[in-house]
């Protein structure tokens, strides 16, 4: 019984939240990795693109709520998501046409693009704060739980309860659907193949019928859509605060690099690696160990390896270790 209790405790506080967080990171890293594979630079503005898109979703959600529109048990934000995606796609395409295209036509070095993207990041950041402010915003509605702690206890007869929030379930389902779509798109469609070809060999792509501007445009559309989906899921799961999204940039890049930057499957795997490490390292294992160890051995302290305040250090350490030991990541990166 104690073992089961320990397991449920672990599931409830580590596995379930980390899976949802991993799914959010995976979607974010997928966007970063697509931009890297096709446009060949690390887009620092991705976190704030997520923030901008989520802001649109929040605003539209509030609008729908005030009109009395809802999806029943599902969050209204899902209804607002397509509008947020459209708005962010427009923003991404306008940015590309006004900033990145100029450097592309000059065939600038990747580092120039990176610095330009830092500038774009500040602009997006300011734009988002200007519209919605810097505070926490909650926009989750509908049924809060799929599995409630009390119900689980009654059903299982265990001391520990298990809760699965609607937002966590939605995160995982949406992530699976989105990733499946992106993979199908890259593998099977002509456009996806053109993107892969362009990523493989830009010089050759320019010497065939592939239209580079079209490939770039489609990449931005995909990246923007992924950013908004990731941002909205994160916002539903936690809350929406522009600065948090800027901070997400680090775990997202860590995920993309761990997986092998430029490699979509790697981005997904990397997202989960980073999320599980982060949550497992910052979790206090006292409760779990209390169930598992004989009475005399029970810990008095929290048995927490790292305070949650330091959770970003985990991404940093993963990043540094991967770059030192296997710079290409789990999957050999750079092409899609």
């Amino acid at each position: 019984m104690d073992v089961l209790n320990a397991l449920v405790l672990f599931l409830n506080f580590v596995m379930i939240p980390a899976t949802a967080y991993g799914a959010q990171l995976a979607l974010g890293a997928l966007g970063v990795t697509l931009i890297y594979a096709v446009l060949r630079f690390s887009n620092f503005a991705h976190g704030d693109m997520m923030a901008f898109g989520t802001m649109l979703v929040v605003l539209v959600t509030w609008g729908l709520q005030s009109l009395g529109v809802s999806l029943g048990p599902l969050p209204t934000a899902l209804l607002a998501l397509p509008i947020g995606i459209l708005g962010t796609i427009v923003l991404a395409l306008v940015t590309d046409a006004s900033v990145y295209r100029f450097y592309r036509s000059k065939r600038s070095e990747p580092v120039i693009f990176v610095i330009a993207s830092v500038g774009v990041m500040f602009v997006y950041n300011a734009l988002t704060r200007f519209v919605i402010g810097t505070d926490d915003q909650r926009f989750e509605d509908g049924a809060r739980f799929v599995v409630k702690v009390g119900d689980f206890r009654k059903w299982s007869g265990l001391d520990e309860g298990l809760a699965i929030r609607t937002s966590q379930l939605i995160t995982v389902v949406v992530m699976i659907l989105t990733v499946a779509f992106v993979f199908w798109f890259l593998q099977k469609t002509r456009t996806g193949k053109a993107m892969r070809a362009y990523s493989d060999n830009e010089d050759l792509a320019l010497l065939s019928g592939i239209s580079p501007e079209r490939v770039v445009r489609i990449t931005w559309i995909l990246a923007a859509a992924l950013a908004v989906i990731a941002g909205t899921l994160y916002g539903l799961d936690k809350s929406f605060r522009p600065f948090t999204y800027f901070q997400l940039l680090l775990p997202i890049f860590a995920a993309a690099i761990v997986g092998g930057i430029g490699h979509p499957l790697g981005a997904v795997a990397g997202g989960f690696v980073v999320a599980y490490s982060e949550v497992m390292v910052t979790y206090a294992y006292k409760g779990v160990l209390t169930y598992l160890l004989p009475e005399a051995w029970r810990p008095e302290g929290l048995v927490q390896m790292l305070g949650t305040d330091y959770k970003f250090a985990v991404s940093f350490i993963i990043l540094v270790v991967v770059l030192l030991i296997r710079p290409t990541g789990i999957f050999r990166g750079r092409t899609i």
Partner: peptide, 28 residues
Amino acid sequence: AHEFASLTVRENLMMVPAEQPGEVLWDA
């Protein structure tokens, strides 16, 4: 020699012709 390393030989060849409707989102 340049090639699209992660595509098959046939896919490499099929990449060449321009203005394929499958490469335009709307048409696709």
